[in-house]
Design a protein around this nucleic acid. Structure first.
Lengths: 225, 225
DNA sequence: CGAGTTATTGATTGACGGGTCAATTAATAA
DNA sequence: TTATTAATTGACCCGTCAATCAATAACTCG
């Protein structure tokens, strides 16, 4: 049955992995389950990815890049800072990220990054990208205070995502019902927070530079190594 | 060896559970590990908690109530709204919540709540308390817009916590080194966000009531059942 | 002390899951 | 057709782990 190309199989296995993580709500899914969901025998998973960890990391990369594509596409054509900020916010709470599968993947990958150096690195890439997108969009509005504000907005996005994601019947045990989370509220919150931050800054305008926090390039998200 | 009271043993086992979750960075810890860490035989864990799930839930309750105590204590004596908001922020990023054990517990319990109804309920209690604390402290400053703002601030707290918690070498594999996360930055971010939200509101003062979002008591955190 | 109670042990079970590998099958080349 | 390569299978090995349980140690009270 030498059928499909390596690339295809890998993709199918990754998709199956995410599907199963979504269905079970945990990383405790067996290779057999994943293989079965991919319509393939268990051994094949180990043939393409050498162990489970690497399969998970591949799945994580897939989720991350899916989100990245969403943002990129949402930004396409948006020129004004506010348009761009809106695009980022909406992509963060859009359908792609709010499928049960994606939610389960995100949350569990957060947990995974507590024990896996690799996973932590991937998450860090996401954070850096988000931060840099926000800074780019904010700078025209608030200049050098953009990095500081961006850090809060990024935190807000993550936090709200988590809260909406875990909200109520959101996930629970698989059933026929349609959970259908809606993230539009989330992006509205984000936009309001941005508005508030910007208003405040234009208000304190003159003195802002000197009394502001002395090192806005601090730890949280900035190139480290 | 009939030694300690039930209450004591339960407490010891709960502490050991959190300790092990912290050390391994995951909920994949065996009952034997936990028992050993508590200086007790594996069987005893099942004697007091009937299964592992319940042991985890007890640990989660413990973490949650630890945080609750921190907040209560921080609020003690604080009268002005700003003092109270500062207390909440600092408690959220205080030492108690930033030990590696607590971080690992929180993050993994978030993931757990994707598959456990019980865990989700517990998390919901935490969210409701945080929200209500924030609203109480915000209302004197911004009146009926407090709930809406509180939702963002709560999200910001969660999100920043997550980001600081996962930051860099934060956890990784157990070693002798002292990671010693510092959350004081987090609370400063929170205070700045609050300041921004309040400034903006006092600015838009007159029109604010009518153009505000029509239903600030929306889904995210509000009594549901 | 001794009978009854409660805490505690740790060996044991039974299921399960990651990873390996020899064999099989399809596609391709000669 | 035959030879060669590569994908795919699925049974199997070995370790692990949640949960059970019969035995035992410690404590209580008469």
């Amino acid at each position: 049955m030498a059928r499909k190309s390596e690339a295809e199989r890998r993709q199918e296995l990754i998709a199956a992995t995410i599907r199963e993580i979504g269905a079970k709500g945990t990383l405790n899914v067996t290779t057999s389950q994943i293989a079965q969901s991919a319509g393939v025998s268990p051994g094949l998973a180990f043939h393409y990815f050498n162990d489970k960890e690497r399969l998970f990391l591949a799945a994580m990369r897939s989720i991350l890049s899916e989100y990245g594509n969403d943002v990129r596409q949402a930004l396409r054509g948006k020129k004004t800072p506010d348009e761009r900020l809106g695009a980022i916010a909406e992509a963060s709470f859009g359908m792609t990220s709010f499928r049960r599968e994606a939610i389960s993947a995100w949350v569990n990958f957060y947990a995974l990054s507590l024990r896996s150096e690799q996973a932590r690195r991937l998450l860090y890439v996401y954070q850096r990208r988000l931060h840099s997108n926000l800074v780019d969009a904010l700078r025209p509005k608030i200049g050098e205070r953009a990095p500081d504000v961006a850090r809060r907005i990024a935190g807000l996005i993550d936090g709200l995502y988590l809260r909406y994601a875990l909200d109520t019947r959101g996930v629970s045990n698989a059933d026929g019902e349609a959970p259908e989370l809606d993230g539009s509220e989330g992006s509205q919150h984000v936009m309001r927070a941005i508005a508030a931050e910007c208003t405040e800054i234009s208000e304190n305008d003159v003195i802002s530079t000197e009394q502001a926090d002395p090192d806005p390039m601090a730890i949280l998200v900035g190139p480290q190594e």
